[in-house]
């Protein structure tokens, strides 16, 4: 690690044993995106259909 890794425009932020010469004071937020589809919930409408389904089948 004794290599001359000192950038001129930014101070190096060497965190031994891992090294970084990147500019440290330029963070940018990267919010996690929502990618999972909302779970299909049994709505009252669905519940109603499910309730009358056995009756409908019997009638059929």
């Amino acid at each position: 690690m004794n290599v001359p890794l000192r950038p001129t425009t930014w101070p190096a932020t060497t965190t031994e044993p891992f090294l970084s010469t990147l500019p440290p004071a330029a963070p940018l937020a990267m919010p996690k995106q929502v990618l999972t589809a909302p779970r299909l919930r049994v709505t009252p409408g669905w519940a109603w259909v499910l309730r009358i389904w056995p009756g409908l089948r019997q009638a059929g």
């Binding site: 001359p4 000192r6 950038p7 001129t8 970084s20 010469t21």
Partner: peptide, 20 residues
């Protein structure tokens, strides 16, 4: 990387970092 910096005069515009 040190060699690259010396070769190209890259200090201040070439960066290297390794993640933990």
């Amino acid at each position: 990387f040190a060699h690259l910096l010396a070769d190209r005069g890259g200090a201040g515009r070439m960066f290297y970092r390794r993640r933990v």
